[in-house]
Every structure is written in C-alpha cells, then in structure tokens.
Amino acid sequence: MTAFSNRPQTRDSVKIMSRLDLTKRLVAKLHKHEAVIGGIGNTNFDLWASGRRAENFYMLGSMGLAVPIALGLAIAQPERGVIALEGDGSILMQLGSLATVASRAPKNLLIVVMDNGTYQITGGQPTATGLGADIVAIAKGAGLSQAAWAADEGHFEEMADQALAEPGPWLIAVRLDAEKPKIQTTRDPVQIRSHFMRGIGTQPAWGS
C-alpha cells in the first residue's frame, strides 16, 4: 500500500477538483470490464457523460444504495472489479454499509466518495461533510483501513491504479467544486438493469 499511505491528507488539506474530470480519469482506467454502480444524483450524470459503458449501472431511486448494490455484485462476481460511486449526501444516509463492506472485505470492491459538502441537486444545502464530518475518518472507523483522501488529480490516478490492481476493499474520497453536470442519464429502470446485465454477462434466470 503506497498511494494510499504516502500522502496522508485531511478533508481540509486536499485540492478541490472537478467531478466530471475525475470520473473521466477513472473510467479511462477501466480495461477489464469493471462494473460501476453510480449513486443517485449528479454522480450518475457525470458517469453517464464519461462514456456509455455497458458495465455501468445507474441507481436513480433511493439514496445510499450504490455501496450495498456493489457489495452484492462483488460477492456474486469475485473475479470482476466493482466500483461504487457515491456522493457525500448519499453515503451519509447509509454509513452502516461501510461497516458491512469492511466485515465482508471483498477484494474486488472500490468505493469512490464524491464530496462537495452539499446536496447540490436540491439547491446546495450543506451536508454533514460540509459541516465537519470526514468520510475517510468514518470509513476507517468502520473498519475500512484502505481509505484515503486524494490530494490532487495525480494522486487520485495513483490511488485508482493501486485500487484496480491490488486486493481491496478500497475507499477513495475526493473534494469537489460546485460545477453542475451538463447532461442527464436516461431513466428507464428495466432498460438500465437489462443493459447492465448484458454488459456484465449475466442473464435473468427469472421470467425469461
């Protein structure tokens, strides 16, 4: 473990970056058909804007579910890398899921928390991270020892490279500016689910 430990950071010390830029940098590294579970809101929209990968699942319904969906998938497909992209508001609603991930410790799971300190999509009201909560400290407290802040874009790339190559679970937290997404995903849930299943090579065993 190097990229995660060689530049220890606090939430206050890291660079404020662009969600779309970081998402594009991450997606550009996905060469092994890694599955990406996008959390509700602007996280999903910038994932959509980063390329229409067949292995992307866009969770548009309830807050806090990207991490547990990713955990169930990571257990079901241990050979595939699985990435959960969550916003700070969303992960704050399901902090217990970090402890669940730590207790099962799937080697193939990376969680990326996109922290802008606000509920941006509803008008920019502050979240608890904007008022002092530190997701990396929470994750470590929940038992995810391989959790760290990305100091800047280069550090984020180093961390992503390590997380995609070495046994997890991993959590990378990034600070974001207030830039809004330019486009939005399509919304049909069954279409999203079936497109994703084709993308990861599974077929519904039910009702087909």
Binding site: I37, F57, S62, L65, V67, P68, I69, A70, L71, G72, L73, A74, I75, A76, Q77, Q94, G96, S97, A99, T100, S103, R104, R193, F196, M197, I200, T202, Q203, A205
Partner: peptide
C-alpha cells in the same frame, strides 16, 4: 452477510441478482 440495517439488504440482493447469484 450481517447487515447494519434491513434496507441495505434490499440493495445487496439486487446487486447479487444482477450479478447472477
């Protein structure tokens, strides 16, 4: 899989189902 709250399980099993388990 010991959950911290029940609704986590709804999402977890959705992930399992789409992953073929």
């Amino acid at each position: 899989i010991a959950l911290t709250t029940e609704e986590e399980g709804i999402a977890l099993l959705t992930g399992a189902a789409v992953g073929g388990q």
